[in-house]
């Protein structure tokens, strides 16, 4: 996947657990796990806003674009 979710890295830096974060942003732990493992197809702006607010970070700290192999411009 070209978009990498670095949520676990930010969570580790802020020393916050999955249960606490899920509770603070108002989503289930299962959905947070989907987000952390990169299985999510999309993230709502409202969820991203809450994540940035709770983790005190920028969207770019959580999401990263990485070009996949064989995807380079010709």
């Amino acid at each position: 996947m070209a978009i990498i979710v670095n949520l676990d890295v930010v969570m580790a830096k802020r020393k916050i657990g999955s249960g606490e974060l899920a509770e603070k942003i108002g989503i289930t732990q299962a959905n947070l796990s989907i987000l952390k493992t990169g299985k999510a197809k999309a993230v709502r702006f409202s969820t991203l806003e809450k994540l940035c607010d709770v983790l005190d970070c920028q969207p770019g700290d959580i999401l990263e674009f990485r070009r996949e192999e064989g995807e380079e411009d010709e």
Binding site: I27, N31, L32, K39, A40, K41, A42, V43, R44
Partner: peptide
């Protein structure tokens, strides 16, 4: 449905 289920 899958897209909706995996939109967090």
């Amino acid at each position: 449905r899958e897209e909706n289920d995996f939109t967090i």
